[in-house]
Simulated assay, not measured.
Amino acid sequence: MTSTTPRAAERTLAETRRRSDDPKRRSGGGFRYRRAIAVFIVPFAALFTAFYLAPILYAVWESLLKIHRNGTFGAPTQVFGGFSQYVLVFQDSEFWASVLRVLLFGVVQVPIMLALALLFALLLDSPLVRGKRFYRLAFFAPYAVPGVIAAIMWGYLYSPQLSPFGFATSHVNFLGGGFVLWAVANVVTWVYVGYNMLIIYSSLLAIPSEIYEAARLDGASQFRVAWSIKIPLVAPAIVLTAVFSIIGTLQLLTEPTVFRQFTSTISSTFTPNMLVYSTSSIPNFNLAAAFSVVLAVATFILSIGFLRLTQRRAAQ
């Protein structure tokens, strides 16, 4: 019995190898594998194409058209205009003024918002803080408020005539020309700090506890653990929130649009998205599409540039 068992095992192994080397069997397994992949990819690809890729391609096509009239009172028709709409975009001073305005907004608001989000996440992850469930809900609750409602609420608080709590005084007009951009920044920060905090806090929870135990054995304080361990390990999450914030900054629309009901210092071209909306309302869909394409390309360049910069610094 002991002499036949190894031989039987060898025959079984050889038979298994022959079956695995069979081209028909391998092709059948590959087909099932590809079919399983298609089951998961096709629904996403269809929705991605219908609701993301197709609108982008349509906007690019619209930006290459222009309105042509036969005579002064001729019926308007769309004809191919090449890059004529993009020439108008680069000649539009209001567009570039709005872009510079949101870039200034982002340079100041994004670091402050992410610093607060990181601080709150570290506080929630600290063993010294009590009532973490309450604070986690309190920090995240503003994000659950729709942006329009948040802007209306803060608009009433800022308005000198409508504020019931004395936020707006005769000495400081938060809706005036010198403060209205930062009033908008305050609303955006109030809403999105909790969202970014949750991303960073989730990254903190993924850090192995063994690292903290080793740091405590070495006598590291809580501040030292946060500075030397937690912050470096959650750097990818911070970069992710920064990219999201850059994209959101260039897409700023809701808060300044609502604030237009409270102040005349915000024009219809205050931000690039507001300019796109007002241009399409004229209507001039071709120029609005060109504005949108240029804005999308600028957002892509800034996001990729920021990622490359952070990756290069991390590699050094």
Score class of each variant (00 low, 15 high):
Ala290Trp: 14
Lys132Asn: 02
Thr279Met: 04
Arg69Ala: 05
Asn196Ser: 09
Pro55Asn: 06
Leu114Ile: 14
Asn173Leu: 09
Ala8Met: 15
Lys132Gly: 01
Val102Asn: 02
Ala45Gln: 06
Tyr58Ser: 15
Arg26Ile: 04
Asn284Lys: 00
Ala115Glu: 11
Leu240Asn: 08
Leu128Thr: 01
Glu15Lys: 09
Ala151Asn: 05
Trp190Tyr: 01
Tyr277Glu: 15
Ile112Tyr: 14
Ser202Phe: 01
Glu15Leu: 12
Leu217Gln: 13
Tyr86His: 07
Arg69Val: 11
Val180Gly: 05
Leu275Pro: 00
Arg34Pro: 04
Ala314Cys: 05
Pro43Arg: 02
Asp125Ala: 01
Leu122Gly: 02
Val258Asp: 04
Lys24Met: 07
Leu128Val: 07
Val243Asn: 06
Ser292Cys: 00
Phe165Glu: 04
Asn284Gly: 09
Val108Asp: 10
Ser27Ile: 11
Leu181Asn: 10
Val129Trp: 10
Thr249His: 05
Leu123Gly: 01
Val145Arg: 03
Leu175Asp: 12
Gly71Glu: 07
Ser209Pro: 02
Val187Gly: 06
Ile56Ala: 13
Pro111Arg: 06
Ser98Ala: 15
Ala141Lys: 01
Phe140His: 04
Leu252Cys: 03
Leu217Met: 15
Pro232Lys: 07
Glu213Gly: 01
Val87Cys: 01
Phe105Ile: 06
Leu162Ile: 11
Glu15Ser: 11
Ala206Phe: 13
Val172Pro: 02
Ile247Trp: 07
Leu233Trp: 09
Ala97Asp: 15
Phe291Ile: 06
Ser281Trp: 09
Arg26Asn: 03
Tyr156Lys: 04
Ala226Phe: 08
Val191Pro: 06
Arg35Cys: 08
Val193Trp: 10
Arg34Gly: 11
Arg224Lys: 06
Thr299Cys: 14
Tyr33His: 03
Arg18Ile: 07
Arg260Gly: 09
Leu217Gly: 11
Met197Arg: 08
Ala38Phe: 09
Leu157Arg: 04
Gly74Trp: 04
Phe83Tyr: 10
Ile41Thr: 15
Ser281Asp: 13
Val293Gln: 11
Ile112Glu: 02
Ser228Glu: 14
Asp125Trp: 02
Ala115Gly: 15
Ala288Ile: 10
Gly82Thr: 02
Pro23Leu: 05
Leu233Ser: 00
Val79Pro: 00
Ile246Asn: 06
Val172Ala: 04
Ala138Gly: 05
Thr257Ser: 15
Ile301Phe: 03
Tyr195Cys: 02
Asp218Tyr: 11
Ser292Arg: 11
Pro6Asp: 03
Ser203Trp: 13
Thr254Ala: 04
Arg130Thr: 08
Thr4Phe: 13
Ala138Tyr: 09
Pro272Arg: 00
